[in-house]
């Protein structure tokens, strides 16, 4: 289809008008926000809760007991968590036999697709920060926390450090230098649990992804 390529590009070049009046791109409407750290956290929480996300603020040292409480409350029997990441290690250190089983995403999906889809109750991942304005979590899946880990289990727990909340998406991608460092194969903004309103505009959660998104904010 190289013919198609050259035909399309030729038509576009031939048809281009010289008189493109290009207005200035003034990014102020998506950039300039003047929020304190506390305001950003409050706004993040308000926004993500408005779409059914769950937020628990905990002192940074206290997240493990809080997570254990939530696992018990939600009656989850296992938890998928990276054994290589620091939270996974901390969790394993404080573990004991009565608790839900800890699982690891330690092999390619092809080897355990059915188990992942049918037997995993919940997952726990880190994130690269959050966006206050939209209540979004920023995740770059990688070998330790692969893509499906945040999508297939019905409950997804995320650890968010309170000082990693950006005001806007624009601020997040410019501060973190996304363009310069190059994007990963997959980057995500996640803002609440999976939902649909395709049946008469009535909201239902957990249509394809998790029905619950639980954020532990580490203060």
């Amino acid at each position: 289809m190289n013919q198609a390529r050259s035909n399309i590009l030729r038509r576009l070049r031939a048809g281009r008008k010289a008189s493109f009046a290009l207005p200035r791109s003034d990014f102020a409407p998506v950039r300039d926000r003047d929020w304190s750290a506390a305001e950003k956290l409050d706004l993040f929480q308000q926004k993500i809760e408005s779409v059914h996300g769950e937020v628990h603020r905990v002192p940074a040292q206290q997240w493990v007991p809080e997570l254990l409480r939530l696992l018990a409350e939600k009656q989850l029997s296992n938890l998928l968590v990276s054994p290589e990441r620091k939270p996974g290690q901390e969790l394993r250190e404080q573990w004991h036999g009565d608790l839900p089983e800890l699982l690891a995403y330690d092999q390619p999906i092809e080897n355990w697709k059915s188990e992942l889809f049918n037997q995993v109750d919940a997952s726990l991942t880190t994130c690269r920060g959050a966006i206050a304005e939209t209540g979004s979590l920023i995740l770059w899946p990688d070998t330790q926390e692969p893509r499906l880990m945040t999508l297939v289990p019905p409950v997804h727990f995320v650890l968010l450090e309170a000082d990693q909340i950006y005001a806007t998406f624009h601020e997040a991608l410019s501060t973190q230098g996304w363009v310069n460092q190059g994007l990963p194969t997959n980057a995500l903004l996640i803002s609440g649990p999976s939902k649909t309103a395709d049946i008469e505009q009535t909201l239902a959660y957990g249509v394809h992804g998790p029905a619950e998104l639980v954020v532990l904010v580490l203060e």
């Binding site: 390619p108 209540g135 979004s136 899946p141 994007l183 194969t185 980057a187 903004l189 992804g209």
Partner: peptide
């Protein structure tokens, strides 16, 4: 009327050798 959708999925390439899914 949503401030954002649940997922904004940004794809820049196929699964790399060391990745476990995609």
């Amino acid at each position: 009327g949503q401030h954002v959708t649940t997922y904004v999925n940004m794809i820049s390439g196929p699964r790399k050798e060391e990745e476990k899914d995609g």
